[in-house]
């Protein structure tokens, strides 16, 4: 693609200016406000708010959840996408629909379904309790619902891409004597790495920000099962507005960090 240095028409300039203004008003201003509210009582108060043990724990818990959920969903997403784009089998369309289902379900419903399944009055809960296994209101439950809610994100990015790319490259690799693993590592993966990365970023953002589903199954035990969004909501309800914004700023910071990481990887041109 070549770009020619041309003089832009006034309409073009107006349109570009409008786009920038729009982005600033809708995205930049709220983001800046978060940080200015968080810092309005000074850096010392800000740091003290973040260092507050239950807030610190909620940050750790949110990161832990993302660290578990993102890789698991990448592996599952790649497997599913590979399966449905490379093979034709009965129930293929059904599999796609099932994987996409969580995206169509409200998170609060997802949480409630888990409660009805694994809760003490639920379908499997009594049996689990009999075996001494506590699932609901633990970190495990938070990770499970987060997996559920974000299950479609990687697969959704990959399926259309892999269907469009087709399997010619892979067949060529195999016919030239590559092993299955070599084919995946040197042919398939490089072709889909950006889609994986994009899916991972979507998953990460959603996991860190998820409120509805997690709020149902977490039990909101401070310092144990309170994720960052739950902690922010509680701080805000406690009239601790500065604390709430301080916690929000860490969430915003992690989001920005993710984007910077993505840009850096893109600029470097890959991870191989």
């Amino acid at each position: 693609m070549t770009t020619k240095a041309t003089t832009r028409s006034p309409a073009e300039i107006a349109l570009i200016a409008f786009a920038f203004l729009f982005a600033a008003a809708l995205l930049l201003v709220p983001l800046t406000l978060i940080f200015s509210f968080a810092l309005r009582e000074g850096l010392g108060v800000y740091l003290a708010n973040i260092a507050e043990p239950t807030t610190l724990h909620s940050i750790g818990l949110t990161v832990l959840t993302a660290v578990v959920v993102v890789p698991v969903n990448i592996v599952i997403g790649v497997c599913v996408a590979w399966l449905v784009s490379r093979f034709n089998f009965r129930g293929r369309q059904l599999l796609i629909t099932i994987v996409e289902l969580p995206a169509a379900v409200s998170p609060i419903v997802a949480g409630t379904v888990y409660l009805f399944l694994y809760g003490g009055q639920g379908l499997l809960g009594p049996a689990l309790q009999g075996a001494g296994i506590q699932l609901m209101f633990t970190v495990t439950a938070i990770i499970l619902v987060s997996l559920f809610v974000t299950a479609p994100f990687v697969a959704r990015e990959l399926i259309p891409l892999m269907q469009q790319q087709g399997s010619e490259d892979e067949e060529a690799a195999l016919s030239l004597g590559a092993s299955g693993w070599q084919m995946f590592w040197f042919v398939t993966l490089p072709n889909i790495r950006w889609a994986i990365l994009y899916g991972a970023i979507l998953t990460n953002a959603r996991v860190m920000g998820e409120f509805g589903a997690v709020s149902v199954v977490s039990g909101s035990i401070r310092g144990q099962t309170n994720t960052l969004p739950l902690q922010i909501s509680q701080l805000f309800n406690d009239f601790n507005v500065t604390g709430a914004f301080a916690a929000s700023s860490t969430l915003a910071f992690m989001a920005v960090l993710t984007l910077v990481l993505k840009s850096a990887l893109e600029a470097k041109g890959g991870w191989r």
Partner: peptide, 8 residues
């Protein structure tokens, strides 16, 4: 409700 559902 949460206690009934198993909040320990």
């Amino acid at each position: 409700r949460a206690v009934l559902e198993g909040l320990p």
